[in-house]
């Protein structure tokens, strides 16, 4: 079966061990996690987990059902069935030699990203967007020489007219 990218938004009880139950479910059943992000919500008793996984249609059905079966999972929302906004944040440290500085700044401008640290040898660039945009930016930075990357997993919310 075809492998697709799926983006799940999961509301869970804000309790110790919940993340371990979820990651344990994935490792125990041989599912993969591409990225994972956990945060607070407006309700202090609830956390939101956004997860990206690559699998086939039958596997995602099992993943959703198995997640729902965990006692601490409140809802499992498959955003890939809907319209949604997705963002990821990355910090990228690139070599900034004098002959490349102007070009880097131009690209940063085009991508509406920011240089958040400037040194003699490096820039640190902050960029946010969906994974496609960040990948494109990385490709352009590659020839300049990427030193280090730190990146969050994807986070996402459904749109108001969420039906696809």
């Amino acid at each position: 079966m075809d492998t697709n990218r799926y983006l799940l938004s999961i509301l869970v009880d804000n309790e110790p061990g919940v993340l371990s139950r979820i990651s344990g479910l994935f490792s125990g059943r041989g599912f993969n996690i591409d990225s994972l992000s956990v945060a607070k919500t407006t309700d202090p008793n609830v956390s939101i987990i956004t997860m990206v996984t690559y699998c086939d249609a039958q596997t995602i059905e099992q993943i959703k059902k198995q997640l729902h079966k965990l006692i601490n999972v409140i809802t499992v929302n498959d955003l890939t069935e809907k319209k949604y906004v997705e963002r990821q944040l990355a910090l990228i440290k690139v070599h900034a030699k004098s002959d490349k500085r102007a070009e880097i700044m131009r690209i940063v401008d085009i991508f509406r990203s920011k240089i958040v640290d400037v040194g003699h040898a490096h820039f640190v660039v902050e960029i946010s967007g969906d994974s496609g945009k960040i990948d494109a930016f990385m490709r352009l930075m590659q020839p300049m020489g990427i030193v280090e990357i730190a990146s969050t997993g994807a986070i996402a919310l459904g749109r108001e007219n969420g039906k696809k």
Binding site: G17, S20, R21, G24, L25, G28, I71
Partner: peptide
């Protein structure tokens, strides 16, 4: 033991 039995219980508590 909560960590050990997480995958083989329906649920567990400390």
């Amino acid at each position: 033991i909560v960590g050990i039995t997480r995958p083989c219980t329906k649920h567990n508590y400390l």
